[in-house]
Computed example of a mutant assay.
Amino acid sequence: METATRLNYVPNPYASSLRGRKSKNIGVVIPEVADSFFSLAINGIESVAKEKGYHVLICLTHESFENEQTILKEFQGGRVDGVLLSVSRETSQCDHINDLISNGLPLVFFDRACDEVDTAKIITDDFESGYKATAHLIQENCDQIAFLSISSSLSISNKRLEGYLQALSDYKISVNTKQVVQ
């Protein structure tokens, strides 16, 4: 230990992870960082991970399904001990996610999830959010309520749309398809 201190020895975490089969890294895969939600999420994730002795690797998909596939494939090589994932808006099928889980890597969805993947999900009630927002606008006497979405393949967008449509139905307002913009 004295020699190690004198020589400024720093253990190689990659070599240690090979021996112990633990990288002490958590992968966080998100579509972007410009969104304040993802910035706040990263801060919270990093804070908790650090307390537990883990490092956070942040990877951006830039809303690309292909990038998401590549990142998750790279993680299968032992680079991380687990993954927190918010899928890209292009993600419409989830085989690459099931492959990751099948290879024994724990995965938790947050915000955006693939409904057909059986794993932990930390999500909001998007149906309720869409419903309440629409009902509020109706109660404020708005009569031209549009629904805007970034993707028809994202479950969060589809559930918000369902809430929007249900609120219109409950208030006996007909749907104008020109006001639903994907």
Rank of each mutant, 00 (worst) to 15 (best):
D111W: 05
Y131M: 09
D126R: 00
N103L: 12
G104K: 02
S149Y: 09
V117E: 00
D111F: 05
N98G: 00
S92Y: 14
C142W: 12
D143P: 06
A113T: 13
G130D: 14
S129W: 04
R79D: 10
F127K: 09
N158R: 15
A133Y: 08
A133V: 11
V80F: 05
H136K: 14
S129A: 15
I138F: 01
Q144D: 12
L100C: 01
I122W: 06
S129H: 11
P106T: 10
I138M: 02
Y131A: 10
V87K: 00
I123Q: 07
N98L: 05
C142M: 13
H96C: 02
S129Y: 10
V80S: 06
Y131S: 11
A146L: 09
A135T: 14
L148I: 15
Q144W: 06
K132H: 11
F127W: 12
G78D: 08
L148A: 10
C94K: 03
N141Y: 08
Y131I: 11
S157G: 11
A146H: 07
I145M: 06
Y131F: 15
C94V: 08
F147W: 04
S86D: 08
L148N: 09
R112D: 06
I156S: 13
L154N: 03
H96A: 06
F147P: 00
E128I: 11
A120E: 08
L137I: 04
I150W: 09
V80M: 07
T119Y: 08
L137Q: 01
T134I: 06
C114Y: 02
E90P: 05
Y131T: 11
G104D: 02
C142S: 14
S92K: 15
S88L: 04
L85D: 02
C94F: 14
D99P: 07
G104F: 05
